[in-house]
């Protein structure tokens, strides 16, 4: 049956303190050492090793990332300078070809003018020659006509 026997017992009771107390304390202290060597140390080693591994990897990855960013910036500046260089070369080449074109044009013009002038002079000389010959022939012809007329009379 329900036996509420709080303090009335000749021995025992709820607040019966005896050698159980120090022995339990010793047992708990022993348990602390056992658990330390069986649980806290080995698990701690593994967990902390892993935590170090992870944090080292994170640091390494961060270093690599910053290196990559530096390289990227380097490449970007290189690309930029290469671009301006290319632009410079292109504009230079354009200038050059423009100059060459102009020179060639001028040369051709001069040559054309010279040959035109030469042709004109030749035409002129031939014209005058032809004219001289023509006037000479006219003279001869007139002389012939005059002579014939005189002879027939």
């Amino acid at each position: 049956m329900l036996a509420f026997n709080f303090f009335g017992a000749t021995e025992g009771g709820l607040f019966d303190i005896n050698a159980t107390l120090p022995l339990m304390a010793i047992q708990v202290v022993a348990l602390t050492y056992i658990l330390n060597s069986l649980f806290f140390k080995p698990v701690g080693n593994v967990v902390e090793k892993r935590e170090n591994f992870v944090s080292n990897n994170i640091i390494e990855a961060k270093n690599k990332l910053s290196e990559v960013k530096k390289l990227e910036a380097d490449l970007l500046t290189q690309l930029q300078s290469a671009r301006t260089e290319a632009q410079r070369i292109v504009s230079e080449a354009e200038d050059e070809s423009d100059k060459l074109y102009k020179e060639a044009l001028e040369l051709a013009n001069n040559e054309a003018n010279a040959s035109k002038e030469k042709a004109r002079l030749e035409i002129e000389s031939q014209t005058s020659a032809a004219r001289d010959q023509l006037s000479k022939q006219a003279d001869d012809l007139s002389e012939l006509i005059v002579n014939r007329l005189i002879l027939e009379k």
């Binding site: 036996a3 026997n5 025992g12 009771g13 019966d16 339990m24």
Partner: peptide
């Protein structure tokens, strides 16, 4: 049934222990 304040006593020499506490622990 409820048994409050009753213990399984172990007697070792002069000292008395609550056996049920040690057994379960």
């Amino acid at each position: 049934a409820l048994e409050v304040g009753q213990h399984l006593y172990w007697q070792i020499g002069n000292i008395r222990l609550h056996g049920q506490v040690f057994l379960t622990s």
